[in-house]
Amino acid sequence: MEPIIRTENLDLYYEQFHALKSVNLDIPEKAATAFIGPSGCGKSTLLRTLNRMNDQIAGTRIEGLVSLGGADIYDKNMEVESLRKRVGMVFQQPNPFPKSIYENVAYGPRLQGIKKKSELDEIVEESLKQAALWDEVKDFQKRSALGLSGGQQQRLCIARALAVKPDVLLMDESTSALDPISTAKIEELIRQIKNRYTIVMVTHNMHQAARVSDKTVFFLNGEVIEAAETKTLFSTPEDSRTEDYISGRFG
């Protein structure tokens, strides 16, 4: 698997706090990579670094390289908007716009200048299908997105992110607020789309990482302790700290 994202000697500081320490990591293209580790280990910080969400936090300082498809995303010529079009994100809490289901998904493509109704219809349908929501909403796309259940709202947010055809989809604990059935639907959709998109997910649920990801990265105190094929990391981890953490014996 070719890396699409690469970090080299990446350090990140929030004021004096050293949140990421010399992170060297390859994220394979068109596969799911999961970040696991205890709270405060840096996994969400690294995820937010991949689409420059940390830019908005005052006092953040970054050293080292983060590249997407070979290009330095922190280069002064990199446009953050175009970066975020290529690197979409889904958050812990579903955050649909207070608009119709259709408009939520069509929003991004419209911003990109797509005006033709038939084209937008096609994108909305395809995105909702990829997000495994189409069958449930196809007959009432004009209804408010806020009337959907939490799990449906989260899948709508995934459809909205996919509508702009990103290369990478970042998921920050995207199922932690959902019930087991909704979680299972999202895990299934990740399995369905991961050979078309690069997915990077942060999860507190280790078994979710084991179920859906191809590669798993274990973080501790801002460092990458181990990055390996998921099957290997959960059966024969190399580092005893990884084994202790995944076995629930950490601390």
């Binding site: 280790m206 078994h207 959960f234 059966s235 995944i246 629930g248």
Partner: peptide
């Protein structure tokens, strides 16, 4: 009940 992994599962 414990969902063991790695060596614990083995």
């Amino acid at each position: 009940t414990q969902q063991p992994v790695a060596k614990d599962l083995r």
